[in-house]
Amino acid sequence: MTKHELRKKDGIVSPLIEQGQSPYQIITNHPELDMSVRSLYTYLDQGLFTARNIDLKRKPGFKPRKCHKTQITNRTVFEKRLFSDFSELQLSSFVEMDTVHSSRESNKTLLTFFFTKEKLFLAFLLNRCTKGAVRLIFDRLEKRMGTYEFLSVFEYILTDRGSEFGDPVALETGLDEIQRTSIYYCDPMRSGQKGGLEQAHTMLRMVLPKGTSFEFLTQWDVNLIVNHINSTPRESLNGSTPYDAALETLGKETLNAFQLKRIDPDLVNLTPKLIRFNH
């Protein structure tokens, strides 16, 4: 490779690595680089680009987190909603649900969803992490989407045993008393049973590292982060993005109801700068 060719490739690669993009993401979006992911790692190892190995984000390795949430104490909630009951359904596609907490000085929390087929990630800002606040998001989404579309999209939800999910009947019952979803619970201390969402949280934490206060976050900020995550290509989707995968299966109207937008591949930023630049 000539020095001119190397500089040209460096001009594409290094700025994108600075934005938190992975070598896979860069190679997928820039076939004109004409190199494999392995070759890109090799060039970085050899110091041929401005970016260095130390600039690479750690691959979202998944380590199930210890659960420090306030847990559901009413055991009757779990009747016919256990993970064993969920497993018997043998579903190929469902939705995982969880919450992500702010640093201690803020009560604000993110309610998160992950669509296992499309790898689509959603997050909604709660002022407090309560059963009522979670129900409010369900109601708001049902109003935007319509009851039957909500039922189609959120037919089965798997979540953990956090106390904010302790009233499944309220979440399952729609605005017109129609059942809009079915809630199931992971086994105690087994957050890995909804591992897709845990991995999505790893990407979220690239932008909002642990210890970050959510106090000054707005839903607009959260939507922006979600859009950047959903515009990142996945190997599990053969290089497609969750946004484009969901566009095919869920449709444009549903993505609009979720307030999702496609981000230009070269503008995707998975670092804390994404929010700092927009404040």
Rank of each mutant, 00 (worst) to 15 (best):
V153G: 02
E149W: 10
N74C: 09
E155T: 05
L141N: 06
E96I: 02
A246N: 07
L237T: 06
L270Q: 09
F114A: 10
G162K: 02
P272A: 01
R180L: 05
T218H: 03
E79Q: 08
K59Y: 11
T112K: 06
Q19A: 13
V77P: 07
V153A: 07
F124V: 02
V268E: 09
L217V: 03
L260Q: 14
R58D: 13
P272V: 01
T112Q: 07
K194W: 05
V13G: 06
S163P: 01
V222E: 07
V77I: 14
Q90L: 07
S22H: 03
I72F: 05
L122C: 08
E88D: 13
P242G: 12
K210V: 10
S191P: 15
A133V: 04
I26Q: 01
P188V: 03
L274S: 07
V37N: 00
L255D: 10
L110E: 02
H68W: 14
D266T: 09
L217K: 00
E142W: 06
S93K: 14
L255P: 12
T232F: 15
Q259H: 15
V13D: 04
F121W: 08
T109G: 06
G162H: 01
K131P: 03
F83H: 15
A123W: 04
K273L: 12
M97Q: 14
H101V: 07
G47A: 06
R7D: 14
M206C: 11
H30W: 00
L91D: 08
I54P: 00
G174F: 09
V37F: 00
I17F: 00
L141H: 03
I178W: 05
V100K: 11
G239Q: 05
E105N: 15
I183C: 11
K131W: 04
P209A: 04
S213E: 02
Y41W: 01
M189T: 12
F138I: 04
E32T: 15
I183F: 08
T232G: 11
L6Q: 13
V134I: 10
G196H: 10
S213A: 05
H228S: 06
E149D: 15
F94D: 07
L40Q: 01
L44D: 00
T42D: 12
D85Q: 07
T147N: 05
R262W: 08
